[in-house]
Write a protein that binds this DNA or RNA. Structure first.
Lengths: 369, 369
DNA sequence: CAACCGCATGTAATCGTTTTCATCGTTCGC
DNA sequence: GCGAACGATGAAAACGATTACATGCGGTTG
């Protein structure tokens, strides 16, 4: 592989000149510049990024650290980050860690020196302390800060508002006994959603009852198992808000097995609006979150700090979450004649034919399945 | 940030010794080693990876270049790669490019010097030429080589076999007029699947009829639109094989709107077995592909070459694709009593509660929706 | 007892850039 | 014409590691 020295020799100039041509950092005469460029092209030269970042202390890459790479939410976040990064000419290093605060530290350590900034999603409050001091001397953007997150960039989705809207909707439909299938204990998103649930109850004059809360872990099977708990309750709740869609799916399956009709006997509401939600029978009422733009926004928030290598200040941004009403909650679904199964999640239609669906999806998302 | 020099000075040894302690590349007495390590820990020292890779010519990172990051298939591939990479202590640089062979070249160029090897998925045969000469001097593993792919590592899914199995299944069910909804022209996976379709027809003594082939582009909306084409055919095919699940979903929606019953009036078969397939009504018969292990295998195939920085030789591996029979094809579905919606896609259950579902899913995957 | 050997460690060259500072014509203002 | 200013270029010092080679030192061996 050709080095800057080869190009310089071949072009009959010094390496400084070649460097300047490639960086446009200082004046180089038009003639030499084009000459050097042609030589470089012939030798297939490209600056070695290790050497470059050794001296500039910049890598033009950012790291993405997620608790897992499984599921639609994470993959959409990554896609959003990639979209923005490509536009900004930054590379993306992804990495996942599993569970413990131990590994999150070693994951960060492994990334060190390779990236100019980090986007990290912490599963629970415990992990915050691990990030804490790192964030004071490195650009970090948190993807789901809790109430007392470290002083650094942070971006979150409106967990509280979304949950509130969903439960408020159920209450307004007349349900007086509304259960919740919670996410993992200590999980920040889960806590916020639970808080939204409780406040929505209160706002509708409903008493909070611990007996109506069932623990889950965001997996489909935990939803499946929770069905038994709800069935056992006296009185049985006439509606259940699930802290995410996967659990709602599991719950729906179990209810069908138990011949509990949804929404007639029990109204169900999820959270996330994953692609499947739309296709379930009955279609799942849920709270939509735009994971892709969460990723995009995170990168854009991080970039100014990554560029200057200054720790990100305590800037915060919250992405809205919107209720998507479908069949599973028993509310009248707006619109009837729209194309079914023609919902778009892409930003850029890959074919003109997509156009029609885009419009429809924007109008309303109710399904008639 | 502390450098190797700081540690050496503080520990009263030379930088060579510090380096040796961190690389375990030569004998260092037990005493000095632990001393150096403690100093390093105190100074929070970690070797600068740019400096290191400048001299070693290795980055301990591999690149992943995909045509897009949208959809379940790609995200699972990435997850598989990440899983294997973490285990092997390699970092993963992901990057997507859109469409043209122009950008694939620049994407590769941008990655150059940052990675020890590349896993790339080329959308069509045209892009092969762009990879071609690069692969002769750099470790590359192709994720979907066509028939005449460049001389390099390659891994593919059994597109042909999967399609053959699906269509053969339809034929064995008695269908004499089987249509196909094809993928994009030039797309390698799509071509192979179409070939499997044709050969399966022939194997069952059915004549190939161009009129039964409808063009699609792998999107849901193209499936939706194709419904009209199939409806117009005389005689109307009694079964349709779709080259991927997204198109099958679109087709199912359109058929429902047109009040064509599935599978009674038209049997439908998809490809990929995305998560949604299981939850559709009727549940979609499709061909399962393990995208996650495709990623894992790719990394493992690449690694020996990445480690030695030798171009990967023409080793090839094919991942099996298996037919998953559900309701949409009209065949009797095996098993009836199993838990619904309790299918696992994870390798490692995150909670003990998952265990039961794992077993069930392993047994058979038919659905009773 | 000298030669040798192996272990532990240090010295210094090297990787491929960027960037500061110096140099060297030209041109310009006066 | 002469110094200043300027534009284009080169020389050389970093950047922070790895590693070939040299060195010193005690213990074995013939």
């Amino acid at each position: 592989m050709a080095t800057i020295r080869d190009v310089a020799r071949e072009a009959g100039v010094s390496i400084a000149t070649v460097s300047r041509v490639f960086n446009q950092t200082a004046l180089v005469s038009e003639g030499t510049a084009t000459h050097v460029r042609s030589i470089a092209a012939r030798l297939d030269y490209w600056p070695n990024s290790a050497a470059r970042s050794l001296i500039t202390h910049r890598t033009n890459a950012i790291g993405v650290l997620l608790p897992d790479l499984y599921g639609e939410f994470f993959s959409e976040v990554i896609r959003g980050i990639d979209l923005a990064a490509r536009q900004e000419k930054y590379q993306v290093l992804v990495s996942s860690f599993h569970a413990s605060a131990e590994t999150i530290v070693s994951a960060i350590r492994a990334l060190r020196g390779r990236i100019d900034g980090l986007i990290v999603m912490v599963p629970d409050a415990d992990a915050h302390t691990a990030i804490q001091e790192f964030a004071t001397r490195f650009p970090v953007v948190l993807l789901n800060p809790g109430a007392n997150a470290p002083e650094c960039g942070a971006l979150s989705i409106a967990n509280y508002d979304g949950a509130f809207a969903a439960v408020d909707h159920l209450a307004k439909l007349g349900h007086r006994s509304i259960g919740i299938l919670r996410g993992p204990l200590g999980n920040l998103d889960a806590e916020e959603r639970a808080r939204g649930y409780r406040d929505a109850l209160a706002a509708n004059g409903l008493a909070w009852d611990e007996a109506l809360e069932v623990g889950g872990d965001f997996t489909e099977s935990s939803g499946f198992q929770a069905a038994a708990d709800f069935a056992r309750m006296r009185p049985r709740p006439s509606a259940v808000f699930c802290a995410n869609d996967y659990m709602a799916i599991g719950l729906l399956s179990a209810l069908r097995d138990a011949e509990v009709r949804v929404p007639e006997d029990m109204a169900i509401c999820g959270f996330d609006d994953i692609a499947i939600a739309h296709y379930l029978t009955p279609a799942l009422t849920t709270v939509r979150v735009d994971a892709c733009s969460l990723g995009e926004r995170a990168l854009h928030q991080l970039l100014p700090f990554a560029r200057t290598r200054r720790p990100a200040d305590g800037q915060r941004e919250v992405l809205p979450a919107s209720l998507v009403v479908r069949r599973s909650c028993g509310a009248p679904v707006p619109g009837t004649g729209e194309a079914r199964g023609a919902r778009s999640r892409r930003r850029t239609p890959s074919s003109p034919s997509h156009h029609r669906d885009e419009r429809l999806a924007a109008g309303s998302d109710g399904a008639t399945a």
